[in-house]
């Protein structure tokens, strides 16, 4: 368990870190970044797995199952769309490889 003061330290430092990361981002990356941070809170999957993993009653299992289902959706979906968006950003200085995924 993380308790008391230590937890407050973690909350504070994490808060500053988030602020620091965003404050230097160009507008062009706002949408991918929102999507990227959306992916990062997909870590909720880990908590959901824990909740379902230690479930004892059927009700707890059902709700835990829903939690894992939703958490996995958040993590996987967040990754897929962010990666798709970022993959498209390229500079004209490098020779742009011709891609023929969808015409």
């Amino acid at each position: 368990m993380i308790e008391g003061l230590a937890a407050i330290y973690i909350f504070l430092l994490a808060g500053f870190t988030g602020f620091e990361i965003i404050s230097r981002v160009p507008v062009i990356l706002h949408t991918p970044l929102m999507s990227g941070s959306n992916f990062v809170h997909g870590i909720v999957l880990v908590g959901a797995m824990f909740a379902l993993g230690i479930a004892e009653t059927t009700t707890e299992q059902i709700i835990g199952f829903i939690a894992v289902l939703l958490g996995a959706g958040n993590a996987v979906g967040g990754y897929v769309v962010t990666e798709r968006m970022l993959e498209m950003f390229k500079s004209s200085k490098k020779s742009a490889p011709a891609k023929s995924e969808d015409a």
Binding site: I10, F11, A14, T17, I22
Partner: peptide, 15 residues
């Protein structure tokens, strides 16, 4: 979860 969640919480508020 704490670190990732709070980082997104503050980054998201600023965004």
């Amino acid at each position: 979860m704490i670190v990732a969640g709070i980082v997104v919480g503050s980054a998201g508020s600023l965004l």
